[in-house]
């Protein structure tokens, strides 16, 4: 019996898996970004019940494993009678996961805008929406960049968990190749290297943004 060896074709298959990893990351960041932003606003809202609800959501998402979010949405969507491809379950759960963490990161950024900015804009008779739109959010956005990019690295890595529910992204592609070649060390080191190629520049970007921000701030 002969096995395939890990050659150029196998590497190309890994690259096609990488495309799905990137796509899943983008879905998670867009979906999680929109939901997370709304939850962050709810977290700093003037309504107490809204703050508590958002805080509870964040606590729950940060207190359960990503794997459980995946299983729950995978089986939950099935129970609801929706026969959807794994990409949908994976995208939905990565969105939920990202929203819980991004909300908390961005809440911190909104709250780190100095209080005087709120007071000054209030004295200019701005409505709360205007305060957010013209004064607070532009500053919060700047503060949030390093940690948001840093979190994107976490998302890229955690999309690998979607392989456990059978979504063929990079990690799953690696498993499939390994099953055909029986060269686990070589295959998984190659997979790790591909993840590294995506994540390392993002990590460095996050670090660079952080340094730049510190130079610019007057603290």
């Amino acid at each position: 019996m002969t096995f395939r060896t890990f050659g150029p074709d196998e590497f190309l298959f890994l690259l096609s898996g990488l495309q799905w990893t990137v796509l899943l990351t983008i879905i998670a960041l867009i979906g999680g970004g929109v939901t997370g932003f709304l939850i962050a606003l709810a977290r700093v809202s003037s309504l107490q019940w809204l703050r508590i609800a958002a805080g509870t959501y964040i606590q729950i998402i940060q207190g359960i494993p990503v794997l459980m979010i995946l299983f729950l949405s995978y089986y939950g969507l099935g129970l609801a009678g929706l026969d959807l491809p794994p990409l949908f379950a994976a995208g939905a759960s990565m969105t939920v996961y990202a929203s819980g963490y991004l909300a908390e990161i961005w809440r911190g950024c909104i709250q780190s805008v100095p209080k005087q900015q709120w007071e000054a804009s209030e004295s200019l008779a701005m409505t709360r929406a205007q305060q957010y739109r013209y004064v607070v959010l532009p500053q919060a956005l700047r503060i949030s960049l390093p940690s948001t990019v840093g979190f994107a690295v976490q998302v890229v890595k955690n999309t690998s968990i979607a392989s456990i529910i059978g979504f063929v992204e990079l990690a799953r592609a690696g498993q499939l190749i390994n099953n055909a070649t029986f060269q686990p060390f070589r295959v998984f080191v190659a997979v790790a290297a591909l993840y590294f190629v995506v994540c390392y520049p993002l990590s460095q970007l996050s670090r660079w943004l952080e340094r730049r921000l510190h130079v610019g701030s007057h603290r």
Binding site: A171, P184, F188, Y195, F196, C199
Partner: peptide, 17 residues
């Protein structure tokens, strides 16, 4: 290296590799 690769793949390398 560890911070920029997924935990799942690290486990695979330890267990299968």
């Amino acid at each position: 290296i560890i911070r920029n690769t997924p935990f799942l793949i690290q486990l695979f390398i330890v267990y299968f590799g």
